[in-house]
C-alpha cells in the first residue's frame, strides 16, 4: 500500500443516496484478477453505453470531473455487497478519498485497507459540499489526513474522525496484517484457553 499523501483535487459530487457496490463495480467483473486496471470498470454501467461508448450524461464523463480524485456522496455510500473490487475500482481510477455522511460498513473497512480514505462528515456539511460541487464544476477539495481536516472549496475547514491505527497505516502505507502477525503469541495463547472452555467440534 502506498502512503496516503496530502490531497488537493477536483471532487466528484454523487447526490444519490445508497450507491451500492454493484453500481461502483458490476458483478460481472468480480472474476478479474487484481492485476487488471479496475478503474476501467468503475461505475461501468452508468459510465458506458452497451456499445462501449461513453454515456455523455454521466458526470464522470464530463470535464472537469474526469480528473476527480475525491468523491463526495450522499448517505450510505458503498452499501450492499462486500466486494473489495469496488474499492479497487475507485482507487485505480485515481480516487483517494470519499466523503459521505455514512458508509456501508464493509466498504468502509475495505477502503482503509487499500489506501482509500473514507471520511464521515455531518449530513448538512456534505449537502453543502454537494451543492458547491454541482454549481461550480471543477471545485477542489483538500484532504489532510495527518491533521484530520477537509478543506471545502471556499476554504472552510471541517475536522473529521479516524481511528489512530488505520490513520497510522494509511499515512505510512503499512499493512495491518504485519501488526496482527506480531501478536501471534497472544492469539495462540488465547485459542488454547478458548478451546479448553468451549465445546469441541466433532
Amino acid at each position: 500500500m502506498k502512503p496516503f499523501e496530502l490531497l488537493d483535487a477536483v471532487a466528484l459530487p454523487i447526490e444519490q443516496a445508497n450507491v451500492d457496490t454493484d453500481q461502483v463495480l458490476p458483478a460481472r467483473y468480480l472474476q478479474k484478477p487484481r492485476a487488471n486496471d479496475f478503474g476501467q470498470f468503475l461505475f461501468r454501467d452508468l459510465r458506458f453505453l452497451k456499445d462501449g461508448s461513453e454515456e455523455p450524461s454521466f458526470i464522470l464523463n464530463r470535464e472537469p470531473y474526469r480528473a476527480s480524485r475525491v468523491v463526495v456522496a450522499a448517505r450510505n455510500f458503498g452499501c450492499g455487497s462486500s466486494r473489495e473490487h469496488a474499492v479497487w475500482a475507485l482507487y485505480d481510477y485515481g480516487v483517494r478519498a470519499v466523503i459521505a455522511p455514512s458508509f456501508g460498513d464493509i466498504f468502509f473497512a475495505n477502503s482503509l485497507k487499500n489506501g482509500l480514505l473514507p471520511i464521515v462528515l455531518p449530513e448538512d456539511v456534505v449537502a453543502d459540499l454537494l451543492k458547491v460541487l454541482v454549481a461550480a464544476p471543477g471545485s477542489r477539495i483538500g484532504v489532510d489526513l495527518a491533521q484530520q481536516v477537509v478543506t471545502a472549496p471556499d476554504g472552510t475547514r471541517h475536522a473529521f474522525h479516524i481511528d489512530p491505527f488505520p490513520k497510522h497505516c494509511l499515512l505510512e502505507g503499512l499493512d495491518e496484517l504485519d501488526y496482527t502477525l506480531s501478536q501471534m503469541d497472544r492469539i495462540i495463547r488465547f485459542e488454547r484457553l478458548y478451546d479448553v472452555v468451549m465445546p469441541a467440534m466433532p
Partner: peptide, 18 residues
C-alpha cells in the same frame, strides 16, 4: 458478519480480526 478480500486473507493468516 461479511468481510472483504483483505480481511479474508487476514482471517486465514491469523484467525483473528481487528
Amino acid at each position: 458478519f461479511g468481510i472483504g478480500a483483505t480481511e479474508v486473507s487476514q482471517v486465514l493468516a491469523a484467525q483473528a480480526l481487528w
